[in-house]
Amino acid sequence: MEVRTIKVFTTVDNINLHTQVVDMSMTYGQQFGPTYLDGADVTKIKPHNSHEGKTFYVLPNDDTLRVEAFEYYHTTDPSFLGRYMSALNHTKKWKYPQVNGLTSIKWADNNCYLATALLTLQQIELKFNPPALQDAYYRARAGEAANFCALILAYCNKTVGELGDVRETMSYLFQHANLDSCKRVLNVVCKTCGQQQTTLKGVEAVMYMGTLSYEQFKKGVQIPCTCGKQATKYLVQQESPFVMMSAPPAQYELKHGTFTCASEYTGNYQCGHYKHITSKETLYCIDGALLTKSSEYKGPITDVFYKENSYTTTIK
């Protein structure tokens, strides 16, 4: 009895394709271990004539594949690729409408935090270190965002349907971005203890939790000093293409032309909904596939993004 075979390709990165001759009487799992086709788990399936010449994702289970996976995804987590594939199996079914010149995501599976993050990423200057993220990001900007969303979920250790947080998501993504040249110098002034300067680099240099107003941050924000008295913390120097200011959701007025974009969060910790506000020729609110415009805006804002380049204080 002759062994019926077909020729397929296996890959971990969709760049390096490895030619395989597979036995049609055995499952993919018996031949390769966990195997995925377009995100779908085909591990328990036997090869079919229609699979001839198709590319299958496999887990990096030998040295060659491990090197290829690390170079593309910059992670050695053995569960990463499987999590990416199972997320992709959902995100490829989502709709990605162009809204006001940006790629958004039609609401499904509690994905409003991903839509808000995706919209924000198209408006701030950011370059990702893992080629996987950078490639998928370019495709997302062009309207094909399924891979990018699935990668975000995998890097953030999230599953489809789980509630997510924009600030946490951005923080994970910033860790995989090139923020080497970003720098922030802060000064804390206390009447009792004097003053202390701190220099922050990388992710810490672009994120701040405690106030939404970048102007206020430049002037000074009140913080408790270690001595128990009130101290003032203010920005001395900022070198970065953008800054992200966050605070627990509270009524906040966004003035046209003073910011790049913002995240609105309605609801409580267990259950809520994100919308995205962007400042173009007027203010726009993007909620999944829905767009509304207004000249002014007041609502429960939790993150505001500002364009920056270089700032030095005039406070002496």
Rank of each mutant, 00 (worst) to 15 (best):
L290F: 14
E162M: 05
P241M: 00
L119R: 01
Q134S: 09
K280H: 04
T27N: 13
C261F: 03
S50L: 14
Q196G: 06
G82E: 13
L81C: 08
G288C: 02
V67R: 15
F217Q: 01
Y138E: 15
A154W: 05
S279W: 00
K219S: 11
Q98K: 11
D180W: 00
T313K: 15
H51Q: 06
N157T: 08
A69C: 15
E239L: 09
V8D: 08
T55M: 08
L235Q: 01
A262V: 02
Y274D: 06
A289V: 07
N61P: 01
Y234G: 02
S279G: 04
A115F: 03
T258L: 03
H176E: 09
V21S: 12
G267K: 01
L81I: 13
A154L: 05
T192Y: 09
Q197I: 13
V188W: 02
T211W: 02
F32R: 13
V304E: 11
Y138H: 13
C261W: 03
L290H: 15
V58R: 11
A142P: 03
D41Y: 05
D287F: 02
S25I: 11
T232P: 01
T10F: 00
T258D: 10
I45H: 12
C190K: 02
T226E: 13
D77T: 05
V21W: 14
A145Q: 11
Y284F: 07
Q251G: 03
Y137T: 06
H48E: 13
R83P: 03
G164K: 01
Y265H: 01
Q123L: 05
Y208R: 01
Q30K: 14
P97G: 09
H74Y: 07
Q230N: 09
Q216T: 08
L186D: 02
I301R: 07
V206T: 06
L17K: 14
P60F: 09
T75P: 04
Y138V: 15
T116R: 00
E296F: 15
Q237E: 09
L121Y: 01
G202D: 04
P300C: 13
C190F: 05
T120F: 06
H48I: 15
P224W: 10
M85T: 09
T116K: 08
L173N: 04
G228P: 02
T278N: 07
A132Y: 06
D41Q: 15
R184H: 00
L173W: 02
V221M: 09
C193T: 06
N89H: 05
P241D: 04
A247W: 05
P78I: 10
K92S: 11
S263L: 03
Q237S: 14
M24D: 13
F148I: 07
L153D: 03
G288T: 08
C285L: 11
S104V: 01
F148W: 00
V12M: 06
G267Y: 00
N187H: 02
E264T: 03
I286C: 09
Q31M: 10
F128W: 10
I6N: 08
T10H: 11
P249R: 03
T19M: 11
T19K: 13
V22P: 11
F148L: 13
P97T: 08
P249M: 07
L212V: 08
V203G: 07
V3H: 14
G228V: 02
I105G: 05
D41W: 02
H276N: 03
N100P: 03
L235E: 06
G53M: 13
F148Y: 06
V188F: 06
H176L: 13
T302M: 00
R66F: 13
M245L: 07
G288M: 11
F174C: 06
M24W: 14
Y155D: 05
Y137L: 12
K219F: 03
M209K: 04
V189I: 09
Q31E: 05
A132C: 07
A250P: 00
M245S: 01
P130R: 07
D63N: 12
L102M: 14
V8E: 06
L102D: 00
H48V: 13
M24S: 12
V58P: 07
V243P: 01
R4S: 14
V58M: 11
E204C: 00
V166S: 04
L212M: 06
V236E: 00
I105Q: 08
V99H: 12
Q98W: 06
E281D: 15
I223N: 02
Q216F: 01
H176S: 04
D287Y: 00
L179G: 01
D109S: 04
G299P: 07
G82Q: 15
Y208A: 00
C182D: 15
R4A: 14
F128V: 05
N187F: 07
L151S: 05
F242S: 03
I301E: 01
M244V: 09
P97V: 14
K158G: 04
H90K: 12
K233R: 14
Q123M: 02
T169F: 02
Y155G: 03
Q195H: 10
K233I: 13
V160S: 05
